[in-house]
């Protein structure tokens, strides 16, 4: 099978977020960048598991400059076969999705994986945009995937207060959530072989993004905590009703 995993670069989950002078860009000093956890832990590992059972290849696709190659090499170390990097800064969901879908259109894949969202802009829009451009079915927030045959999958997806189970034929696009797979740590052999795996650089298509960042803000500081005597929960109940007005 021909599998593709779209990967994105995000700040580490423990990163303290700050912005540059005019608050238009992230202050990157002191921030470690990682592969978006949903892309790595769930989408990539699931694709590798399918390839291990059904054969074929797992390619990774990334939109970003060459400084992001370390993240692509990590995906190769975990077990992807080869990689493609579209040489453009990813500036918006519509632009990244357009670049990737245009690439996919030319190459054709059986299953295209993304993470359920990125942990920076948390948009969850890229998978759907690619699905619309490619006229492919899109299964979002998948927590479980089982191939019935080489061209049909049974998938469970998370919905409010439950799960939905569905069947779909390849090709399709799927966004992976927790439960899809278990995180894999690259081993020494994987790290060594990743250096010689092919990483092809693709020139981006001309595209005018439809959304732009105006300014970032940090959340307003919380009022300092009001401590309540643990013996006096009647007081807490009263404050929740009369002061916070939430019960």
């Amino acid at each position: 099978m021909k599998l593709l995993v779209c990967i994105s670069k995000t700040p580490d989950t423990t990163a303290k977020i700050a912005f540059n002078g005019d608050h238009t860009t992230l202050e990157t000093a002191g921030i470690t960048f990682i592969m978006n956890p949903y892309d790595e832990w769930y989408a990539l590992v699931k694709a590798i598991e399918i390839q291990e059972t059904w054969g074929g290849t797992v390619s990774v696709l990334h939109v970003g400059p060459s400084e992001n190659d370390a993240i692509i090499r990590k995906a190769l170390a975990i077990g992807a076969s080869d990689a493609f990097r579209i040489d453009a800064e990813a500036v918006s969901a519509d632009q990244a999705a357009f670049q990737m879908a245009t690439f996919i259109e030319k190459h054709g894949f059986d299953i295209i994986f993304t993470g359920k969202e990125t942990i920076d802009y948390n948009g969850a829009e890229v998978g759907g945009r690619m699905a619309a451009q490619l006229s492919l079915p899109f299964i979002s927030f998948a927590s479980h995937l089982e191939m019935e045959s080489e061209n049909e999958a049974v998938i469970k997806r998370d919905i409010e207060g439950g799960t939905e189970t569905l069947k779909v034929k390849t090709p399709f696009i799927i966004s992976a959530a927790k439960g899809m797979a278990e995180q894999r740590i690259p081993n020494m052999k994987g790290i060594m072989t990743s250096k010689s795996k092919p990483l092809q650089v693709i020139q981006p298509e001309a595209y005018q993004p439809k959304v732009k960042v105006v300014q970032h803000e940090l959340p307003p500081a919380k009022k300092s905590v009001q401590y309540i005597n643990p013996e006096n929960m009647t007081e807490l109940a009263r404050l929740l009703r009369e002061e916070a007005k939430v019960i």
């Binding site: 948390n122 105006v214 970032h216």
Partner: peptide
């Protein structure tokens, strides 16, 4: 954005 660690204004 950034998993609620910040907010952003975006123009469509």
């Amino acid at each position: 954005v950034f998993s609620s660690k910040a907010l952003v204004k975006m123009e469509i």
